[in-house]
Computed example of a mutant assay.
Amino acid sequence: MRIKPLGDRVVIKKIEAEEKTKSGIVLPNSAQEQPQISEVLAIGEGITGDDKKKDSIKAGDRVIASKFSGTEVKLDGEEYTIIKLNDVLAIVE
């Protein structure tokens, strides 16, 4: 099943955080901070159809999004987040 966002929305999937600290200490899931870097999976037509917005982001980009933005969705055992383009803070290169 696929998710196709509407308007100026973007579907992202959080990239899992490291489970170890730099010194080698293993962190339990409860002690880990939510990852802020996500991968863009799909983009709405409100972005691809707009000449000013279409070059700003594309599927496959790694982005940093606002912490408490969007709607989390679980589909086929995978967790996705649907956010507005305005909630994307930066692209990680």
Rank of each mutant, 00 (worst) to 15 (best):
D50S: 08
A31H: 11
E19S: 09
G49V: 09
E93I: 00
V92H: 10
V11T: 03
K22E: 13
E45Y: 04
L75T: 08
V10N: 09
P35V: 00
P28H: 07
T71P: 00
E45V: 07
N86F: 09
I37T: 10
A65N: 02
A31N: 12
G24Q: 05
I91G: 02
V26S: 10
L75V: 14
K53L: 15
K20V: 04
G60K: 06
V26A: 09
P28Y: 00
E16K: 09
D8M: 01
I47V: 06
G60T: 07
Y80P: 12
L6M: 08
S66I: 03
E93G: 03
Q32A: 04
L27R: 11
K4E: 06
I43M: 07
E19M: 14
R2G: 06
K20N: 09
A90P: 12
N86S: 10
K22S: 08
T81W: 13
V11R: 00
V73T: 10
A90T: 11
V40M: 05
L75R: 15
G46F: 00
K20P: 00
E79N: 13
I83A: 09
V88S: 05
L85I: 07
E79Y: 07
K13P: 00
S23E: 11
V10I: 13
D51W: 13
T71H: 13
L27G: 09
D8S: 04
E45T: 12
E18A: 13
A17Y: 12
K74E: 15
D8K: 15
R9T: 10
I47C: 02
P5S: 05
K14Y: 10
D8R: 14
G60R: 03
G44Q: 04
L27S: 01
K4R: 10
A65V: 15
I15E: 04
A90I: 02
S56P: 00
E78R: 13
I3L: 15
I47E: 04
P5C: 01
G7D: 05
E18H: 08
L27N: 05
S66N: 06
K74A: 14
P35H: 01
I64A: 09
N29Q: 04
T48F: 12
E72R: 14
E19K: 12
R9W: 05
A59R: 02
V40F: 01
L41E: 01
T48N: 09
D76T: 02
D51I: 14
L75N: 15
G46N: 08
V40P: 09
G77Y: 10
G7C: 01
I15M: 08
K58C: 08
V63R: 04
V26C: 04
R2K: 10
K52R: 14
T21A: 06
G77R: 11
P5R: 08
I83G: 05
N86D: 11
K22D: 08
V88P: 00
I47Q: 06
